[in-house]
Nucleic acid binder design. Structure first.
Length: 274
DNA sequence: AAACCTCCCTGGGGGC
DNA sequence: TGCCCCCAGGGAGGTT
């Protein structure tokens, strides 16, 4: 499930191959992703240059002369760089061929991912992007910022931190790990955390995301980077996917509950409600 | 009005 | 082999 580290890994993987390259050809095999693929807009891009590739939250942005492609990997989406044409298989939905002969291939079995188009001068004003929260690895993500954004929120801290309108890029895996590291029980009301706890949480999120990026993300089942290699952060996970196994701090059995439809693992001894 | 809860899209994988 | 259920990101739309 691509969260910030997997999307960042993907960005770094495609950037050197497609930035400043011209689009020679587009193959769109499937139109039905999360939203319809804007085929007509994309077809205008032949002969157009990708000037820059950027990440905003879990979205990737491909800036061209005519406008911007907005990509989201959903939960099973993946981008690959091919250096020669390879026969497409069932879930290979879109190929973008560049003048350096590289092919950017978008694959997504579940089709929860999206490929959208905007010709706004500032693509960040797109409806899906305009209300996104702060980047967790930026200097704007601080305990004070969180305190301000959470003071009127009574929902579980875990749900609040997965709300992309508060902070972007943090999904189920990394918030589970960060709450364990910060010793905060995931159901704690967001507005009940002390500034000291928020400090622990902010610090844990930054540390864990940076470590995960360094290891190329987390591969549980299917995440592979743009060269087809897995990420190695899975080996570092302390709680996610370990329900029923001993806590690595206290050896008590890790518990599993559901918060906002999401599986949640925690240690009822190490992580306390306040 | 804002907060927040539930549903839904999809297909791979696990259990039986 | 096959069937059923579970899981997931996050927007849509409903309720409080």
């Amino acid at each position: 499930m691509p969260e910030l580290p997997e999307v960042e890994t993907t960005l770094r993987g495609i950037q050197p191959f497609i930035e400043n390259q011209t689009i020679e050809q587009l193959t769109i095999r499937v139109l039905r992703l999360r939203w319809p693929v804007p085929k007509k807009d994309l077809q205008k891009l032949i002969g157009c240059r990708v000037n820059q590739v950027k990440r905003r939250g879990k979205y990737l942005l491909l800036f061209t002369d005519l406008g911007t492609i907005i990509l989201h990997l959903g939960m099973s989406g993946r981008l690959r760089i091919l250096d020669s044409p390879v026969i497409a298989s069932k879930h290979d939905h879109i190929d973008i061929v560049f003048n350096n002969q590289c092919i950017l291939r978008f694959t997504d079995p579940r089709r929860f991912g999206a490929l959208l188009w905007t010709n706004e001068p500032n693509p960040l004003s797109h409806p899906l992007l305009k209300d996104l929260g702060v980047e967790p690895l930026s200097r704007y993500f601080t305990p004070r910022f969180l305190q301000r954004r959470l003071h009127n929120k009574r929902l579980a801290i875990k749900s609040a931190m997965m709300d992309q309108h508060i902070v972007v890029g943090v999904g189920n895996i990394y918030i589970t790990e960060a709450l364990f590291a910060a010793r905060i029980h995931p159901v704690t009301s967001a507005n009940n955390l002390s500034l000291a706890q928020l400090t622990q949480l902010v610090s844990a999120i930054k540390t864990i995301l940076r470590q995960a990026i360094k290891k190329g993300g987390t591969t549980l089942k299917d995440f592979l980077n743009t060269q087809g290699k897995p990420g190695y952060f899975s080996q570092t996970l302390k709680v996610y996917g370990r329900a029923g196994l001993p806590c690595l701090n206290c050896q008590k059995i890790l518990k599993s509950i559901r918060i906002g439809q999401r599986g949640t693992i925690y240690c009822s001894y190490c992580q306390l409600i306040t």
